[in-house]
Design a protein around this nucleic acid. Structure first.
Lengths: 235, 235
DNA sequence: CCAAAAGTGTTTTCGTTACACCCATGC
DNA sequence: GCATGGGTGTAACGAAAACACTTTTGG
């Protein structure tokens, strides 16, 4: 692998120094439960950060694509295969990891908590309300905030929120998810209008069961009908 | 560095395998010249891609922050220090680099081409019109497109375009830059309205010189007055 | 009958777009 | 005087926001 100096476009590289950096992937796995946006975390057990919350991550293997590494982490921790996953940012401060030079690429993911079996809860693997987290190990709080911000931007014009819900859901549940993510209250009539206008929903002609009030209709996501918003300056 | 397995949050890692991945940074350095959006490129000299255009990049050094690496590349190639630089995405397909496993984090940068001295034009370092590039070495065309797309999104509501222009510029020049980036024609009156509304400009009470028509006023960027647009769903 | 949420349209507001004429300069 | 772009305002349109009452169900 010394050839990298001779054959690459990088110029005058010398030696194995460049292989003293490890690359990891950290996943911010969002879920929605009890009306709150939650994130899947573990308790950190390295001495510098003992007891603090930590995201789920792992080093990237030499023979695996970066994206594959994030899918692997998700699969290992949640058992889920086909999930929404989006790369957000790579954090590479020299001192971000006490054990050595580790650069991490972060992803956020949206899953339905009811699909996840947290059977082996090693290191107290659990769902934690995003709004209750004010401290984490490493730079994971920064990462969490970056991913949450990216999610907020994303939901504005992309129908990704459906990944947090079961296949069948009511408009109220859908609105609750948006409110949890954006941390605001939304107008119910305008909310409904928007979704019907976007044509993102399919009416299933079924009603909610076991609710202590008038049951709402159930919908599923209409994957086919997604179109982007027009941009501001491009006429 | 074996400790990483014991002390980190990563779990059951074994050995030095994880240090067989190199990390690089690639910079998409945009400039504006002759009415066109251009990018600073070199000719690739590794055998698999000989003669193809390549972005400017280098491996990240073990003791340098990721962001610092991108600033270093920029400084080494352009001599410029204080420039706009934004991380875009990290590309990590196993086979993206023929010389071995190299994962690259990409940045885009906006500079004023007239500030850049391409004195030592090694490997034919030059400004190339973005729209004329249909093939590059490695996955650099994908990277270029990702950065161009990010730039398009960015200029919609962030005043970053000023970085491509000299300190003093006319509204026509400013509009030309937007048109080059977005690849559309814009309405002149609405364009002016937008900028005055945003309060992004300071009227310098000077006029263009040596233009073969009525000279336009010159402006500079008003860094203080930047505010974001409101988002769609958050009322 | 009471509580709780479902369902439903219209008006107002505001930002975006479209559009045409006179002006200043160089040649 | 002619070519080139500079400078300017208004009307139409469309998207988003504000807003209240009736209906359905469970208890």
């Amino acid at each position: 692998m010394k050839q990298i100096s001779r054959f690459s476009h990088f110029g005058e590289l010398s030696d194995k120094d460049y292989f003293r950096i490890a690359l990891s992937v950290d996943c911010v796995i969002f879920g929605f439960e009890d009306g709150e946006l939650k994130v899947l975390v573990i308790n950190c057990n390295i001495k510098e950060y003992r007891g603090k919350l930590s995201l789920l991550g792992d080093l990237v293997r030499p023979d695996e694509d970066l994206d594959s590494a994030s899918y692997r982490i998700l699969r290992e921790r949640t058992g889920l295969g086909d999930v929404y996953l989006e790369q957000v940012q790579t954090f590479g401060a020299v001192d971000r990891h006490p054990a050595g030079r580790v650069i991490t690429t972060t992803y956020f993911s949206l899953v339905n908590v009811r699909d996840v079996q947290l059977t082996l809860a090693e290191n107290d693997l659990h769902w934690h309300p995003v709004n209750d987290i004010h401290d984490m190990a490493f730079d994971h709080l920064t990462i969490l905030h970056a991913c949450h911000e990216r999610l907020r931007e994303k939901v504005d014009d992309h129908p990704v929120v459906f990944n947090l819900l079961p296949k069948k859901f009511s408009l109220r549940e859908l609105q609750c998810v948006y409110e949890a993510i954006l941390n605001t209250r939304l107008d119910r009539r305008n909310f409904r209008k928007k979704f019907f206008m976007m044509d993102w929903l399919v009416d299933l002609d079924e009603l909610e069961q076991d609710v202590p009030h008038r049951p709402g209709k159930l919908y599923r996501f209409n994957a086919a009908k997604f179109t982007r918003k027009p941009k501001a300056l491009a006429r």
